[in-house]
Design a protein around this nucleic acid. Sequence first.
DNA 1: CTTACTGCAAAAGCTTTGCATCCGT
DNA 2: ACGGATGCAAAGCTTTTGCAGTAAG
Lengths: 148, 148
Amino acid sequence: MTVDNTRLDAMVERLRCQGHRISPQRLEILRELAGSPDHPSAEALHRRLLARFPAMSLATVYKTIAALKQCGEILELQFSDRDNRYDAIRPTPHPHCICLECGAVTDPPAPDMERFVASLVASSGYAISSHRLDFFGLCPRCRKKRGI
Amino acid sequence: MTVDNTRLDAMVERLRCQGHRISPQRLEILRELAGSPDHPSAEALHRRLLARFPAMSLATVYKTIAALKQCGEILELQFSDRDNRYDAIRPTPHPHCICLECGAVTDPPAPDMERFVASLVASSGYAISSHRLDFFGLCPRCRKKRGI
DNA sequence: CTTACTGCAAAAGCTTTGCATCCGT
DNA sequence: ACGGATGCAAAGCTTTTGCAGTAAG
């Protein structure tokens, strides 16, 4: 796993500023997040961490995610029919592609999103503070598998 | 409530085609959906229907929603931290504005969305079949209340 | 030392499912 | 009459919470 230490340090620093403490478990969760560009679920994170931290509780993962949310250091993609997915590498809103077959979540190249968001912010009458842009379909691998 | 009878008839017809039956309860749920542009939750629908159908079960509402989903006649906006919301008036994907204070969900004017979606579909490598565009913030009313 | 964090288990909350009965078609 | 729909209650699942013990700062 390739951990982005700059990002890891930023998360640690931000948590500390907000009065959170950094336990060994928490540090390991942050490290895992900093090295996971695949938008893992809480359960997936927990599974990966168990190898290095056999006693880690799933509740601890959720509590650390809650702390990161409170600091604005993680982006939560909510789903009601499957696990939520998390992106702590790019915690500000950006588009995602979600594969309906394998569940992969990826960051697509974002073509002139700025202008699109800006125009909507201007025309909606809302004071927009964040957004969510999800595109559902088949990822390249699953397309190939199906010959589409 | 202003029911769009054209839309209501279309839903009934589509359900029938797919082998579903139209009970009095179901017809009333469809009528309520056709007259609800506010993207109600299942529970909100149920609450409104109880006035006219005191014995209506929440499970029946969910089962009718499931039938509509299967027919592509309803758009489900999933949330993991609150009730899902439903739009049976415009069942194809379109942008939404969601108020973080009062929970209102509205359809904003959609400025050159076509081009944005098209460019992403082209650049992502995915075979995109649907999308979800949510904008979170304060609705005009809640802005006013707060003086923002 | 003070107060947050951990891990476990229980609770919460929305949605789905099983089942006996009822009713469209 | 057949097969789907209803209503009730129970089950399912993910996420949150309570608590006693532990440890970070």
